[in-house]
Computed example of a mutant assay.
Amino acid sequence: MKKGSNELTRTTNAIIYGRFSSPIQEPEEGSESQEQGCRQYAERCGYKVETVSTGHHGGKQ
């Protein structure tokens, strides 16, 4: 709370999870691009990014 203010400031925490479902998607470039886009979105919305995680989930082959 700011000194001399009656307003409470709330921060919404966010977790970024990048997911790859195809071997064609490049995990290195793709994960950086996904994370960057998510961080930009979080900043615009006033979210505080707490954690970043990525994973690979195979689809039908």
Rank of each mutant, 00 (worst) to 15 (best):
N6M: 09
F20T: 07
K60D: 08
R44N: 13
E7A: 13
H57K: 14
R19G: 08
E7D: 13
E32R: 04
K2W: 05
H56Q: 15
M1W: 03
Y47T: 02
G46Y: 03
T51W: 06
Q34K: 05
Y41P: 06
K48V: 10
E29K: 11
S22K: 04
E43Q: 11
K48E: 15
T12A: 10
R10A: 15
G30H: 00
E26G: 07
Q40D: 09
E43K: 09
E32C: 00
G59N: 11
K60C: 07
N6L: 13
A42C: 07
K60V: 07
P27M: 05
T12H: 11
E29C: 07
S5N: 08
G55T: 04
I16C: 01
C45E: 15
Q61N: 15
G58F: 09
I15E: 12
E43C: 04
N6Q: 12
R19S: 11
Q40H: 04
A42T: 02
S5E: 10
G37R: 08
S5K: 07
E28A: 14
Q34I: 06
T12G: 05
V52N: 01
I15S: 12
T54D: 11
T11F: 09
T54A: 09
G55V: 02
E26Y: 03
R39E: 00
G30E: 00
E35N: 01
S31G: 06
E43I: 07
T54V: 05
V49N: 01
E29I: 08
E50M: 14
L8F: 06
Q34A: 05
K3L: 13
Y47L: 12
T12P: 04
L8D: 11
G55A: 10
M1L: 05
Y47K: 05
A14H: 05
M1A: 08
R10E: 15
E26L: 07
Q40I: 02
Q61T: 14
Q25V: 03
S21Y: 10
R44W: 09
I24W: 02
Q25D: 04
